[in-house]
Amino acid sequence: MTDTPSPTASVASASVPAARGIAVRRWLRALLPALSLVLVVTAIGVLNPRAISYFGFSLMLGLAIPIALATIAQLFVITVNDLDLSIGTFVGFVGCVTATLLRDNPLVGIAVLVAAIGVYAGLGALIHLRNLPSIVVTLGMSFVWQGLAILMLPTPGGKAPDWLLTLMGLKPPFVPFPIIAAIVIAVVVHFGLMRTSYGTILRGAGGNAAAIERAGWSLLRTKVTMFTLAGVFGVLSGMALIGTTTSGDANIGNGYTLLSIAGVILGGGEFVGGRVSPIGAVLGALTLTLAATQLLGFMHIPPDWQVGANGIILIIVLAARALLSRRGDAV
């Protein structure tokens, strides 16, 4: 999706067939996220044909929207070569705010959520200015968010605001709401990050920070922008999650940290170097949602193995990617 194949540019001296081979490999690599999704949907269709329907997809993809949003949040952080290990508990915290403050006292709720995004922006600045390892800072923050969530909602409960329930319960004609939402998320982020000039600078900050800095751009600003965006999408994810599950729980988002990282990687994102793919990441999130919960259920795989199956899917996709880029093409 991301890197448009340009065989002429990269292999000027190589022979034409070799160049074509590399081009094919690149295309296959770019299509890998879509292929994985098609594979999972096909498997579900074979195992349970009734699931392939408007109603079936609405049900199966119910949790896909918050997962996709959390994955996008993680994608922004990964783009600048960092990792957010706190996004799961952050989503849980936002969920608790949404199910309590945002319903009872909207203005205060909004203020708290904006402040939370501000904290994310501050983390970006802190990590850049003090040159801190993002893993440790965000691991520490994961405790902070979880602590706040427990203070806010010691026992599961609360209720989503009515407008949010209405929004998440939309039933548009022909195409289920989660699919429309996924397309909107993917297109908006793709345009912003891959097609605008500042999006290119943001990705460049992950690819070659020194070059971006020498060209006169502020690395502090790119880092803060990316962490702020991560905060914004984390908030959206938490709200979407509560809109779907209707009530809150301090531990509701804990699994999202690992799911979001897996989604970005599954979607063709590289771990370093600013090479990411928003469309791929959304596809990756959909694949994980379907594979982790639905497909395993249809295949009668015991719940013990659900986490393991995520790991195996991740490894298979990474292995396929490694195979496709074995020759010539840089990983």
């Binding site: 800072v137 520490g140 602590g147």
Partner: peptide, 26 residues
């Protein structure tokens, strides 16, 4: 309470890391 304990643990770890992280030249 458990919530405050988690909150403070997280804040102190982030604080200590920030203090120990050192300047860029390190």
């Amino acid at each position: 309470s458990a919530g405050v304990r988690l909150l403070l643990t997280g804040l102190i770890i982030v604080g200590v890391i920030t203090a120990a992280g050192g300047p860029k030249s390190a």
